[in-house]
Structure formats: C-alpha cells, structure tokens
Design a protein around this nucleic acid. Structure first.
Length: 444
RNA sequence: GCGGGCGUCGCCAAGUGGUUAAGGCAGCGGCUUGUGGCGCCGCUAUUCGGGGGUUCGAAUCCCCUCGCUCGCCCCA
C-alpha cells in the first residue's frame, strides 16, 4: 500500500507553525479592530462566473490557475483564487452597500493551480482589507497605512512601499495604444515573452524581468505621464497623504496589477528578506468592480497579504534580529504547572485537580503515563514547566501536596520560588504562587 | 506550463557498485518500582520517496513516476 500524502502544493501547518500564525493573526486582528474594520467570512467555493467576470477572463489566474469543477447539480464551481470578488459579491448580495460605506477584513485559504515554490503554494492564505464606498485619495493612504503599520509592528525588516497610478480606463486605453506603438517600433529588441504579450496584455511587459527588455523600457513612455489631469491630481493627493503619514514610498511607473479590476492607485509592499517572491502585500483601487459584478456603482480600495510569504519574512527577520519584535513569534509558552501523579486514587484526584487549576487560569499539563516519579519529573523538566505538583497516594491521604520549583533557581531565591506544601482542598494559595496574574476564579 | 538542483529513521545527516546502512538530536526503557535537570547503558531504517530495468551483486548506474526546492511565467 502506498503511503498517503497531501496533494501537491497543499501543506499542513503543524503546531510549531500554528503557534506563529496565531501570533500574527492576533496582531492583525488587533490592528483591524483599532482601524474600525469588521471581519467578513465568505464561502471558499463560488460560482465560476464570479471570478471570470470579476478578475478578468484573460488573466492567468482565471485562464489557467483556477480549481474549477462541475458539482452534482451541474453548476460550475471554483475554489476562490482571491478574496475581493467574494467580498464584493457578499456585500452586493446582502445589500450592505445601501447601509453606507463598509470597512471590512477577511482571511483564509485561497487556491491557485500553480507550480509551487518558496512562498507560493496551491492552497495559500491571505489576509485582506476592503474599503467599499470610499472614494477619497485619503482612503487610499489610510488603507496602505493599516498594512504598513501591521507589517512594521510584526517586525518585518526591509519594508518598502511601491506605488503607481493606473488612472481611469480611458487613461489606460490611451497609454496602451501609445506603448504598443512605441514597442512595435522596437520589436526587434524585445524578448519572445514580451512579444507575445504585446498582443495579449501589453501593460504586463512593464514588469518583465528580462534585463534587455528592462533596459529598453527605461526610455518607454510611462503610464503616469499619460494620465489625464484629474487622475494626476488624485495621485498627487495620495502621495501628499502618504507623506503626511510619514510612510516612505517609491514611485514605480512599471507597477501594474495582474487582475483586471484595478485602476488609479496600485501598490505593493515588499521586503528585501525574500528572493523572487518579494511582494508581501499588494493592492489597489477598484472603482469599477462592484458595478461590473452587478452592484451599485461604488468606489473601493483594498489589499491582500500572503501569509506564507509573511511567515517567511518574519522568520528571516527574527533570525536577522533576535531581539526584534519578529522574534516574539518563536517564543514558546510552556505550562505553568506539571502535574506529577501516580497510583490509582492519586491519578483520579490529579485529573480533577488539573481541571480545577485550569479553570483557575493556570496552564496545566497532566502526566497521563502512570510512569515512575523519576520519569515524570524528567518530562516535567523537559517541557519547560515552572512548577511541578506531586500527587501520590500519600498526598491523597494527607490532603496536602508538594509544589516543587523546577529549573535551577538563583541562590538568592525568594520564598515565592522555593518548594512548598499546599492543601488540596483550597488551591487559591497555590494558584497565586504559580501565577499571580491568573484570573483566579477558583470554582468552589 | 518551461528549465536547473535534490529525495537515506520524526529531524539533521555519513555512505558514490560488495559495509551487519555510521553518527547526532528527539523518543522509549533501564541504572534510580516516590522526586527532575547531568551522566552512563540499551532499544528504535530487513532498507535508502515509489515502480521498473542493468548487474553475480544497487541507497549508489539507467528509465519512468511522485514529491520538495531554485529560477522563469504568474501572483500574495
């Protein structure tokens, strides 16, 4: 029988990782709470048409990367490749937009059938923010600031913000014609890939990694200079707002977005800690999408950050700076107390005590092996617990047990860190010694 | 989808045609059947991701396949 294993590109998060993820998620949740963002949870599975219409039929994501299948009711379904389309669909479907502007965040798995590599999996995870019904250039800056503050607070090193403006659809149309004409005149200097894209998606040639093409593009007309006056002014206000927020940014006239719904502000936050997958967070304005999906014409802006990449960056940042805030990810939280127990009645009592002490707010590890005391102590020590409580038949009879300090204690140990005896019918003193900060709502 | 590297125990690994497949970490047991951290002793891969082939002989060579990884494409 062949060994079972997870599908390609589908990865398990083991306890060592989930610990890190939970730290990141709780920091993110706190940032979102303070920014007045509310969580929205949408299904992982949607009608295929949502993404085809929302993201754009011609994009690679829709064209060749979707997990689509026909369900038992003959509907074409797709595992979501991104979050924005679903959030917009939900907002439209439930009439959220008629209740005023929406400040939303979401998180969870996304699916794209791609070749896995570092920071890229077939099931991956994003956290994203969507501001629906916000048109002001200040909202662009605000939403960027939320991402920036979050990443900085998490301790991501080497952060950089790149922004560009994609203008309005007319701007892009005009620019596309201009760029195509300019490139066609120099078609002999283009690489094969770029030549291909000249017909299909000329704007994407801008972020080609081909060195020769890059050099050529130095001279090419830029989207920014083709923007209409209104778009220019809008972009200027975004920059002004970012400066006021003291967020350093770099204007990258070649920054384009892969999904069709973006216009005006487009941005990426990168980290120098990563290789090819330097973008940790990407987003932009999508004023046309909601209308396109059948909702009321509503301006909107948002971003998404890739958890896997973020975790890679944080691990690199923690290594680079062991005292930085990224290092808090790697901290463990060992139990407050290890319950050493042996003997039939002692084991039963220990089980009950463990629950009582847990209810009182302590982190308690109960040894369930019934092994020799020595063995249990060895394990207690290994797991890093600060204290051990010893319950044997003698303790059950006396109604009193030894609370033993683990690890070497410094010579001038205070009374509070010496071994001591505690009554088992009143645990409040014990709880106080082990963890004075415990909520300590001891059940009677 | 294209190109390069890799795959030996839970983890890190030695081994490059003939070895009983080193070693370390972790785990388990013992020295120590009621007191830990250290130490010592022992156990833990009939088998080298999987399948086929070459050979007297394969973890080592060849083919296929699966997976990982790096780059491209694309994207977060």
């Amino acid at each position: 029988m062949t060994k079972l294993q997870s599908l390609r590109g589908m990865v398990d998060l083991l306890p060592e990782q989930t610990r890190h993820w939970q730290v990141v998620e709780s920091v993110a949740r706190e940032h979102f709470r303070r920014a007045g963002l509310q969580e929205i949870r949408t299904p992982l599975l949607e009608v295929t048409d949502l993404f085809a219409r929302g993201i754009g039929e011609a994009t690679d994501v829709v064209g060749k990367e979707m997990y689509s299948f026909v369900d038992r009711g003959d509907r074409s379904c797709t595992l979501r490749p991104e979050g924005t389309a679903s959030v917009v669909r939900a907002a439209v479907q439930h009439g959220l937009l008629s209740q005023g502007p929406q400040r939303l965040w979401y998180g969870g798995p996304m699916f794209r059938y791609e070749r896995p590599q570092a920071g890229r999996q077939r099931q991956f995870h994003q956290i994203g923010v969507e501001l629906l019904g916000f048109s002001s250039p200040r909202s662009d800056a605000e939403v960027i600031a939320v991402a920036w503050a979050l990443l900085a607070d998490l301790g991501v090193q080497g952060l950089a913000l790149e922004i560009n403006s994609l203008g309005i659809p007319e701007d892009r149309k005009r620019y596309r014609a201009e760029l195509v004409a300019w490139l066609e005149a120099r078609i002999d200097q283009l690489d094969d890939d770029s030549r291909q894209r000249l017909a299909t998606n000329p704007l994407r040639i801008l972020d080609s990694k081909h060195p020769q093409t890059q050099a050529l593009l130095e001279q090419a007309p830029t989207l920014l200079s083709t923007l209409c006056e209104e778009s220019q002014e809008r972009f200027a206000e975004v920059k002004l707002a970012l400066s006021a927020l003291e967020i350093p940014f770099h204007i990258n006239t070649r920054l384009v977005r892969g999904l069709d719904y973006y216009g005006h502000t487009a941005f990426e936050i990168t980290s120098d800690q990563l290789g090819a997958q330097a973008t940790v967070c990407g987003g932009g304005r999508y004023d046309g999408l909601i209308d396109q999906l059948g909702g009321p014409s509503t301006p909107a802006i948002g971003w998404a950050l890739g958890m896997e990449r973020l975790m890679l960056v944080l691990e690199a940042s923690a290594d680079a700076d062991p005292d930085g805030s990224a290092a808090r990810l790697t901290t463990t939280n060992p139990p407050d107390l290890y319950l050493v127990n042996r003997g039939e009645s002692a084991e039963r009592l220990a089980l009950v005590l463990a629950q009582k002490l847990r209810a009182a707010g302590l982190v308690v590890e109960l040894d369930g092996s019934g092994a020799a005391f020595g063995k249990q102590f060895k394990r207690a020590d290994r797991c890093g617990a600060s204290w051990a409580l010893v319950i044997g038949e003698d303790e059950v009879e006396r109604g009193e047990a030894q609370l033993k300090r683990l690890h070497s204690v410094s010579s001038e140990a205070s009374d509070a860190s010496k071994d001591q005896l505690h009554r088992l019918d009143d645990l409040s003193g014990l709880v106080h010694v082990v963890n004075p900060l415990a909520p300590s709502n001891l059940p009677r």
